[in-house]
């Protein structure tokens, strides 16, 4: 099968495994050090879900497949994060809001589960307002796809993806900072 042609989950597995692991790594690099979930485990878990949803499902583009994998990963991470919060935390709201800066530094290996939930909630809100931008954010942030890959997955032009991404990102930035206009008012 051609890399960009259609295929079933079973056929796609060996072809995209490395890339899925890369997605998983992108995801997990945002989590706290010492977490128990590892890229391989995340891929396996994501796979299990995709596969339960129908092994013979045809994916008409590899990008669609990635999008589905990204959704699966997002769900797993959100579930983990909720679980983690349930067992770990009491009243930490005050400082959690202040800790949103962690999302500024992907790649350094120590995000927090809180991020996953904060971003997830914001993404839910964005979905209601502008589904396409939400899709772009999900593929970029939760799946770690590049602009080109995202464009191919959504069937958009890279320029459109870039614009959508920039606007969505700006909205996230503004929203996640958590301070309304009063707090940001110049003296």
């Amino acid at each position: 099968m051609r890399p960009d042609g259609p295929g079933t989950t079973g056929e796609l597995l060996p072809l995209v495994y490395d890339e899925l692991r890369r997605l998983a790594r992108a995801q997990l690099s945002r989590e706290p050090a010492g977490h128990t979930l590892q890229p391989t485990a995340l891929v396996h878990e994501a796979y299990l879900r995709l596969w339960k949803s129908g092994e013979d499902k045809q994916w008409d583009r590899r990008g669609h497949f990635f999008a589905a994998a990204a959704i699966a990963m997002r769900r797993i991470l959100v579930e983990r994060a909720r679980h983690y919060q349930r067992i770990k935390h009491g009243g930490q709201e005050k400082r959690v809001a202040f800790d949103i800066e962690q999302v500024d530094r992907p790649g350094a290996g120590e995000g927090t589960w809180t991020d996953v939930l904060v971003i997830n909630d914001a993404l839910d809100r964005l979905e209601k307002m502008d589904a396409r931008k939400a899709q772009v954010v999900m593929l970029r942030y939760f799946a770690g796809l590049s602009v080109e890959e995202t464009a191919s997955a959504l069937g958009l032009s890279p320029t459109t993806v870039k614009t959508e991404w920039a606007f969505a990102r700006a909205w996230f930035y503004r929203t996640l900072r958590g301070d309304g206009p009063e707090a940001g008012e110049a003296p």
Binding site: R22, A26, D104, G107, A143, A170, Y173, P181
Partner: peptide
């Protein structure tokens, strides 16, 4: 007030590059 808030969002287009950005490491790159 509305215009000012939109302007703030526009300002945020200049958010730090790293914000929300996927990992720099890409196999293609």
């Amino acid at each position: 007030a509305l215009r000012r808030e939109v302007d703030r969002l526009l300002d945020a287009l200049d958010a730090p590059d790293a914000f929300l950005d996927p990992l720099a490491v890409h196999p293609t790159a």
